[in-house]
Amino acid sequence: MVDSSKISGEIPKIPPWKQDHGTAEFPGEVYNTPGGGILLSKLDNVINWARSNSLWPLVFGTSCCAIEMMSTASAKYDWSRFGFEVARATPRQADVIIIAGTIVNKMAPVLKRLYDQMGDPKYVIAMGACATSGGPFFYNTYSVVKGADHIIPVDVYIAGCPPRPEALLHAMITLQEKIRKGLTREQIRMPKPEQGFK
C-alpha cells in the first residue's frame, strides 16, 4: 500500500532556468530580498527568450504560399501576436526568412544572396510543398529546385500546398520553441564558450 500522505503535497519545483525552455515564460526566477530582489537565470536562456519573441520576417514570397503568408500577417490571423509583426523588406533587418513558394533555378542564387545578407542569428522556415521538396514540380521539370534546403539550411518545414495560416503560425511557434531550446542550426553552429572562441 502506498501511503497517500507521502505523495501528496507540492511537487518539487525545478527552477525555471534549469527547465527545458520550450515555453514562452521568462526563463528566470526572482528571489525577494529586503530592498529589492535577485533575478536568477542563465544569460543564454534570456537571450534566446528575447530573440524568440521578436522575430522579424523578410518579405519574401515566390508563389501562392505568399498569399497565405499575407493572410497570416493580416488582421484575421495576425502573426504580430507572436512577435512577428515587423516584416522587413531588406534582409539586413530581418531575422527569419519564410520561403513562401517555389524556388526555381533562376531564383536560387537570389535566395542564397538574401540569406547571406541577413545578419546572424538567422532562421529559415520552408513553407509548403515546393519549398520543402519541389512538391508538385518534383517530376519532369526543367526549372524548379527540389527543395530550398539545397540552397540554404532550413529550421522548420511546413507541409501543405499551400499550408493554411494556422499551419504557418504553428511553424513559427515551433521555431520559437527551437530557439528557446537552442536547437536551431544557427545556434548549434555557434561556438560554445567552453569550446573557446576563435
Binding site: 533555378n105 518534383f138 517530376y139 519532369n140 521539370t141 526543367y142 526549372s143 524548379v144 527540389k146
Partner: peptide, 16 residues
C-alpha cells in the same frame, strides 16, 4: 526547348 514533349534534361528532370 523545355516545353516540347521530347525535352529531356538529365540534371533537372526526374522520371518515374
Amino acid at each position: 526547348y523545355p516545353l516540347r514533349k521530347d525535352f529531356e534534361d538529365p540534371v533537372n528532370i526526374i522520371k518515374l
